[in-house]
Nucleic acid binder design. Structure first.
Lengths: 331, 331
DNA sequence: TTGTAAGCGTTATCAT
DNA sequence: ATGATAACGCTTACAA
């Protein structure tokens, strides 16, 4: 920067002003400075700037498991929105380990990140303590946090359950079953509640043994379907609380020679890319991951009410494909 | 840091020495400092440190498309190895746009990143120019770069083609076809060459019209299978150069009522998680993404021969499942 | 409109 | 073994 200044015959403050366009600079000097920058190939040092203005021009994204398809969509969208604002994105994968989680967060704070988006903290108490003590803005995405002062962007998970049930009921199904995610996760309980309440409103049954608790992965979906069908030969429809489990269930149904959707209707949730690739293509509840990410970034960058609690609850959608309705669509 | 120093009754230099363990410090003072750090909840500022030592403790990972499953695995592994070394990872998605690519790279350089791992640059000339002028270490992953001084970690793509062909030939197939990725990408041509050469070594044919150029996505795999089968009713085996296209092909085969593997054997490449989920589970060529990532990070952190060219070429594997061999395995 | 100088939080050099 | 001090590259009062 000094070089640029001396080459342009001005002071470093002027150079700074040209770069950041803070204070008007004379046209002449301005272009001299720009020329110098150009010919010297000058690149401002963001560390120095960050040190001075106490902002790393950096956003952190902390996730429990990067490989999960849903989180990939969040990474993808958040990266785009963050970079669009001229910031960089640091990602961290906690593997659901509280120690790693704390280490990652600590590292972000040392870098003076301007904001952190996190999802599904494995250890809320410790982390929230750290956050409270610091001045960073934080947004929770996808998973609710029982804490004031932290804005949320989440899905209407109860509504997702309602939508799933309504769809199956509208197709005339009388006996349904559900493969849930881990029930210690609140959103799984909410999805189930929406599903269950809607079914009961129609005076249909959803007994405990029509519910199987999975782990959000392919294998537990597979086992869940096998288990439920061995218990109830008269189940005609199955909702898995994510697409991965639904695809596991689909595999199980095929192996046991049940036709989908003729004998058993099957639906999932997330609307992952793969849900349309399997055969039959999967009916599913769409989660607006892109919109979630966009909102989360917007909140992070909005200046007002750092303290004011915000809860943004997005609506799920229904995507009907061949696994519930024969020949529903092509592709 | 000043606070810590005064609380412990020492100078900031001593505090620094305690933290970084550069020079031995008296046990007594050492513990006093540690106590002060503890009670003040002191967190070293990485921006200031980075400014001073000219290192951001940061690694950049630049990818052409985050959502592609193969890259997700790379992100996942690279993040782990980078964080294990106490560094943070910034990711950038170029969307194959040279302007974005340049902007991302420029941003990383401004942050004094210690290294950059990139894959599939969309604009080699511009970017390489930037890199040459800077002092950062760079490693190319997954895709070769025709430039000296940049270490590579890539797959033996020719070998992958050979492996695919050998597997199909060993099953007795005489007439095969291939759905390739975009042929302007070198690794696609190499995979095809390995496939083709091996077939011709067996005095079998692989005419141009047994080759379909796809775009590495589901839809082009679907179209590729439809097209190839409409041209040749006697094809008995199909290799798609990635799993996504293979799954597209699988869908097409199902819709046209071809049994897999009885009538048509099908294989893919990558060994994505979903390849075992589809029915029938997909035989595929495994890419050791984790090993690739590990090597790339190792090279980045190895001190020697910044200039010395390194080419690490990893071997692909064969994963046999139900799409080529009936009842090959369960799961 | 432009320049001077202090300061952001560290580490490294040089004394002590 | 420890401390004082300069320096890293930038921004920002304050002065001119």
């Amino acid at each position: 920067m000094k070089d640029v200044a001396s080459m342009a015959g001005v002071s470093t403050s002027t150079v700074s002003r040209v770069i950041n366009q803070t204070i008007p600079v004379d046209k002449q000097t301005r272009s001299k400075v720009l020329d110098a920058i150009e010919s010297l190939n000058y690149r401002p040092n963001l560390l120095a700037k960050g040190l001075r203005v106490k902002s790393g021009q950096l956003i952190g994204l902390i996730l429990p498991e990067i490989r999960m398809h849903a989180f990939v969509q969040i990474i993808n969208s958040v990266e785009e929105y963050v970079v669009n604002r001229g910031f960089s994105l640091i990602i961290g994968n906690t593997h659901n380990d509280p120690d790693i989680e704390e280490k990652l967060l600590d590292n972000l704070l040392r870098r003076n990140v301007d904001g952190i988006i996190f999802s599904r903290l494995s250890d809320e108490s410790r982390v929230l303590n750290l956050i409270k003590k610091s001045r960073v803005k934080v947004v929770a995405i996808d998973r609710e946090l029982d804490v004031k002062d932290v804005p949320h962007v989440i899905l209407d998970n109860y509504g997702a359950g309602v939508t799933a049930a309504r769809h199956l009921i509208s197709l005339g199904h009388k006996k349904m079953a559900c493969i849930t995610g881990p029930l210690n996760i609140k959103l799984c309980r909410e999805r189930l509640a929406g599903f269950s309440d809607t079914i009961k409103d129609e005076h249909l049954q959803l007994e405990d043994n029509q519910i199987y608790e999975g782990r959000f992965d392919f294998d537990s979906g597979f086992k869940g379907a096998e288990h439920l069908l061995s218990q109830h030969s008269d189940i005609s429809a199955l909702w898995a609380q994510n697409d991965l489990m639904a695809i596991g269930a689909l595999k199980a149904l095929k192996i046991h020679s049940h036709l989908v959707p003729e004998e058993i209707a099957l639906m999932g949730m997330d609307n992952l890319e793969i849900s349309r690739m399997v055969s039959p293509a999967l009916t599913t509840i769409m989660q607006p991951f892109d919109e979630m990410s966009k909102k989360a970034v917007e909140i992070l960058f909005s200046k007002e009410n750092k303290a004011g609690q915000q809860r943004i609850i997005l609506k799920p959608g229904l995507v009907v494909r061949d696994s519930t309705v024969l020949n529903s669509s092509k592709t």
